[in-house]
Design a protein around this nucleic acid. Structure first.
Length: 447
DNA sequence: TCTGGGGTCCTAGGACCC
DNA sequence: TCTGGGGTCCTAGGACCC
C-alpha cells in the first residue's frame, strides 16, 4: 500500500519577510530582526545573510557590518509575526489532508500518494498561493517521512534559484542515497552538537551513514530517539503528524530586563507581570496549575559582577488559574530567593502541574456563588477586554505602572494588522501616462 | 553598554507498592 | 537460617527544537 507523503512548508527568513511585506522599499535589501531586548539577531534576509549576519549573533558584535552596509534593523514584533503566521496556516489548510503547525514559520502537511511530478506541481501551487494571498515567500520540501521532508525543504531552500523553492525526495531509496551522502549528519533534524560528535567518533558522518548504521550501535549512541531518526532517514515513518496538539504541560514566561534591577519592588513588578502573562496562557487552554516556580538570575556574561541564580517553587493549596492567586504565590516564592546586593538581569515564572480546569474536584455542596465562581468571572472579563483592546489594557496593579525593567524594543515596526491605530496607510497618486514614470510603491507606516 | 524565549521528550534513579 | 522480582510514579537533568 502506498503511503501518504509529508510536506514541510517553511517561510523564508520569516520575521524579516514579515517586515519587508509592509515595507516594499526594503525588498531585496539587507534586513535583520532582533530578539527580545534587542539582544541577538533572530532573523536575517538573504541579503543580510550574504553580509555574514546570522541568527544568534549578538547585535553589539556586528554593529560595524550593519552601519557599513545600511542594514535595516527591527526589534521583534510578535503581534505582527503571529498574525501573518495564522494567515499562512489558513492558506496551507486548503491544500492539506492533515496539518501540524510545527512552529511560527513551519507547518507539516500530509499529501496523498501522488506520482512525483504531480507532487511537485502541488508544491509549486502551495508556494504560489502563499505568496499571492499572504505575501511571504515559502519553500516546500516533500518526502515519505518528516525527517526526510525537513532535509527536502533544506535542499529546496539552498537551490531556490533553479528549484523554484520546491523539492520532492525521490521515492526510490537507492536514488535517495547520493542525496543523503551529501548531508553532514549534524544537519539532520534532531541531531545537535552532542549527538553528532558522538556519531562522528564512530565514523557516522553523513545522513546516509546514519541511515545505514547498525541498529544496536544507534541505540547505544542515542537511544530510541536516534533510532527513530535513522528509520525515518531510511524512509520508514516513525514520527507521526501531530495535528491536535495537547495542552501545554508547563507554561513559561520570562524576560531579560531592559536595564539591571537592584531592588525588590521592581523585581516583584516584573514577576507579577510575567505571572499575569503565564496565567493568561493557562486560561486560554482552559487549564489550572498546581504550582508556580519563580527564578531570578544575574547576567552571566558580566563576569565582573557578583553572580547569583536561584529558583523556588510554591505549591498551591488548590489548583488555580486566576492572576491574583498566582501573583501572590509568585511573590512568596520570590521573597525566599531574593537577596540584596546583586544586579538582576532576568526573571521568569513557570507554571507546573497543569490540569484541565474541568477536572477540578469541586466541593460536594458548593455555595451558590463561590469565590471561585467570582474569580473565574472576573478573569473571563479581563481576558475578553484584553483580547479586544490589546494585551495589558487591564492588568493587576502589582505588575507596576512605570515598569522601569521593561525590555528594550527600540526599533519595533507598527502592528500593521492587529492594532487599529497602527494600520498601514496606502497613498495613491494619479496614474502616470508613460510607463517610465511609474511610481515606486508608496505603502508606508503611519506617522 | 549591549548576548532571547518557550517548549518537548527521554532517561536514570529513587521511592514505593505488591 | 533463609531477605525477590517486577512494576509504577515522580523528579531532575540533559538534549534537542524553532
Amino acid at each position: 500500500m502506498q503511503r501518504d507523503w509529508f510536506a514541510l512548508v517553511d517561510c523564508n527568513s520569516f520575521y524579516a519577510s514579515c517586515e519587508q511585506l509592509f515595507r516594499p522599499d526594503l525588498q531585496g535589501k539587507p534586513v535583520i530582526v532582533l530578539s527580545n531586548n534587542d539582544g541577538c539577531i533572530v532573523a536575517a534576509s538573504p541579503e543580510a545573510k550574504a553580509l555574514g549576519l546570522t541568527t544568534g549573533q549578538p547585535l553589539f558584535l556586528v554593529e560595524e557590518i550593519i552601519k557599513a552596509n545600511s542594514v535595516t534593523v527591527f526589534s521583534s514584533n510578535y503581534e505582527l509575526y503571529g498574525d501573518i503566521s495564522r494567515r499562512v496556516v489558513d492558506v496551507l489548510r486548503s491544500f492539506a489532508q492533515q496539518l501540524e503547525v510545527y512552529s511560527i514559520d513551519e507547518s507539516f502537511l500530509t499529501l496523498p500518494p501522488l506520482p512525483e511530478d504531480q507532487l511537485k506541481k502541488l508544491a509549486l501551487q502551495i508556494r504560489c498561493a502563499v505568496r499571492k494571498l499572504v505575501g511571504v515567500p515559502v519553500c516546500v520540501g516533500i518526502a515519505p517521512t518528516k525527517v526526510l521532508a525537513k532535509l527536502s525543504n533544506r535542499h529546496a531552500k539552498e537551490t531556490q534559484l533553479h528549484s523554484a523553492g520546491v523539492f520532492v525526495m525521490p521515492p526510490n531509496p537507492e536514488l535517495r542515497l547520493p542525496f543523503l551522502q551529501a548531508i553532514p549528519v549534524e544537519k539532520v533534524w534532531g541531531i545537535a552538537a552532542g549527538l553528532s560528535s558522538r556519531l562522528i567518533k564512530f565514523g557516522i558522518r553523513s545522513a546516509a551513514g546514519l541511515a545505514l548504521a547498525n541498529t544496536l550501535l544507534i541505540r547505544k549512541l542515542g537511544g530510541v530517539v536516534l533510532q527513530r531518526i535513522a528509520l525515518e532517514l531510511r524512509g520508514l515513518p516513525c514520527i507521526e503528524l501531530d495535528d491536535y496538539p495537547a495542552p501545554r504541560k508547563s507554561i513559561l514566561s520570562s524576560r531579560s530586563f531592559g536595564s539591571l534591577v537592584y531592588n525588590l519592588p521592581p523585581l516583584e513588578e516584573a514577576v507579577c507581570s510575567y505571572t499575569s502573562r503565564a496565567a493568561e496562557k493557562l486560561r486560554a487552554q482552559r487549564s489550572v496549575c498546581s504550582a508556580i516556580e519563580v527564578f531570578i538570575t544575574t547576567n552571566p556574561y558580566r563576569k565582573n559582577l557578583p553572580q547569583y541564580r536561584n529558583s523556588s517553587i510554591e505549591h498551591l493549596p488548590e489548583p488555580a488559574s486566576d492572576t491574583p492567586t498566582l501573583c501572590a504565590a509568585a511573590r512568596r516564592a520570590l521573597a525566599r530567593i531574593w537577596h540584596e546586593g546583586f544586579a538582576y538581569h532576568k526573571a521568569g515564572v513557570i507554571l507546573w502541574g497543569i490540569l484541565p480546569a474541568a477536572a477540578l474536584n469541586l466541593p460536594l455542596f458548593p455555595p451558590a456563588i463561590s469565590n471561585r465562581t467570582k474569580r473565574d468571572a472576573l478573569m473571563a472579563a479581563l481576558d475578553t477586554i484584553n483580547r479586544k483592546f490589546g494585551r495589558g489594557t487591564i492588568r493587576i496593579a502589582s505588575s507596576g505602572i512605570q515598569q522601569t525593567w521593561q525590555m528594550r524594543r527600540t526599533q519595533r515596526s507598527p502592528r500593521y494588522t492587529t492594532c487599529w491605530e497602527e494600520l498601514p496607510i496606502v497613498s495613491a497618486k494619479p496614474y502616470p501616462t508613460h510607463p517610465s514614470r511609474l511610481p515606486s510603491k508608496t505603502l508606508s507606516p503611519p506617522k
